[in-house]
Amino acid sequence: MGTLTGTLPLPAFGSRVAVKTRVDYQNSQEGALVRRAQSGDEAAFREIVEHYQSKVFSIIHGIVRQRNDVEDIAQQVFAKVYFSIRNFDFRSSLITWIYKITVNECFDYLRKKKVRKLVYESDLSEDEVRRVENTEPSVDRQAPADETLARRDYVLKLLSRVSEEERTLLLLKEVEGRSVEELAQMTGMNENTIKVKLFRARQKLVKAAQRLDRAPGLVAG
């Protein structure tokens, strides 16, 4: 299996000639807004927050599912946007950039939460750990009762095994329902490049899933 994966040609992906769809974000209305924010215009930053806050809330809620923490993570996302907007280089759309920050923040949150839980549990006896696990929400358990939550935990484990870029592309494609053409426009990359990156990301997910199914304890987390 995977005979061609190692020698996948990057620009010439198959028989179809992909159209390079690069959008000039710098000279768009959004570009003007970003430039104002980059020069320290608080009103422009406020406009960005108010325009994208619902989308950010939705992304976070989908990944984290802890309703109480959604707003806190969203605040942190926009604080990061504020402090790094000067580094935004217009190679992608603003929402793609914010999407990436949001997804990274969610995975950071999940990782910190897991570490906190491990530290907390290391101070407890086995009986106490068992008691705590039985009272925690099902989203944190090893084997959640609800099948959807179990599937979500499984997918999050797999996604933690791919790079930030691959994770963002997979989520934009599978969760947001973006087409390859849209992804090319949003990221400023060639359609063929998007296809190759998605394919490699999917292969990594398959391999991670195989390892996880074989030895859950080794891959989990």
Partner: peptide, 10 residues
């Protein structure tokens, strides 16, 4: 796996 990713929709 593509189907499983849809579990991350809000």
């Amino acid at each position: 796996l593509s189907g499983a990713l849809s579990a991350l929709r809000a």
